[in-house]
Amino acid sequence: MENKGKWYGTTVLTFLCIFWIFPVFCVLWNSFKNKTAINLQPFSLPGGKTFVGMENYAQAIGKYGLLKSVGWTVFITVFSVAAILIFCSMCGWFITRVRTKWTKVIYALCIFSMVVPFQMVMFTLSLVTNKLHLTTPWGLIVVYLGFGAGLAVFMFTGFVRSIPIEIEEAALIDGCTPVQTFFKVVLPIMKPTYISVGILETMWIWNDFLLPYLVLDIKKYKTISIIIQYMKGSYGSVDMGAIMAALILAVIPVVVFYLSCQKYIIKGVAAGAVKG
């Protein structure tokens, strides 16, 4: 009886799984079809006349410069996450170990910033970044460091509290400067938190649309999300073929990243959730 119930459950889950993965595959096979076929019969497989090979991909890359925007997205994500990890872990360690009025204020501000919706600051943020000429991918890294600091500092302080202070004191007494102590003693201990924070911030920055859209000079620099929105909006007739190819090229890096560090991603999500 119990076995039968289990078998039944597995079948339901399998069907649900197929339903879950279907939209992505649907986009995949549509990316090899011509425009009219995409609009009229999105669920049929490409074949015969509707099959256009790699033409949509050539369009997306040639006409819209998709590879360039993939490059910028990688650049922005990698360097923003690196900056967040290094600077926010330093900040998080410092404000946990040095308890003054000021460090408490910093901590409270970081927590506060996590609840504030982006719309609250979006207009004024673009004013500030314009004034400071931060409208390049390099400038965007500064903005991400500032906007991502809340969650990162929160998670790092949470972890530092659980490390015994004696190890650091021993290092200081043995003649390490605080900077050496941090990089040689504290940083290696915090490795799991680096992975969790790194994954959460990567997922956010890679997929972010509105912040880069408002901050960047989009005539020169486009991220993947921006270019997809741009393809849809800027021309009279929408090139669905190129959009399908762009969607696939946006999803592939994510899937590769996910399958290669799935264990860490799942752990990172579970760890990040404790923040509630």
């Binding site: 900056a83 926010c88 330093m90 504030v116 500032g146």
Partner: peptide, 9 residues
């Protein structure tokens, strides 16, 4: 961090 936090938030 604080300089970026000031600019960004």
């Amino acid at each position: 961090t604080m300089a970026a936090f000031a600019i960004g938030f």
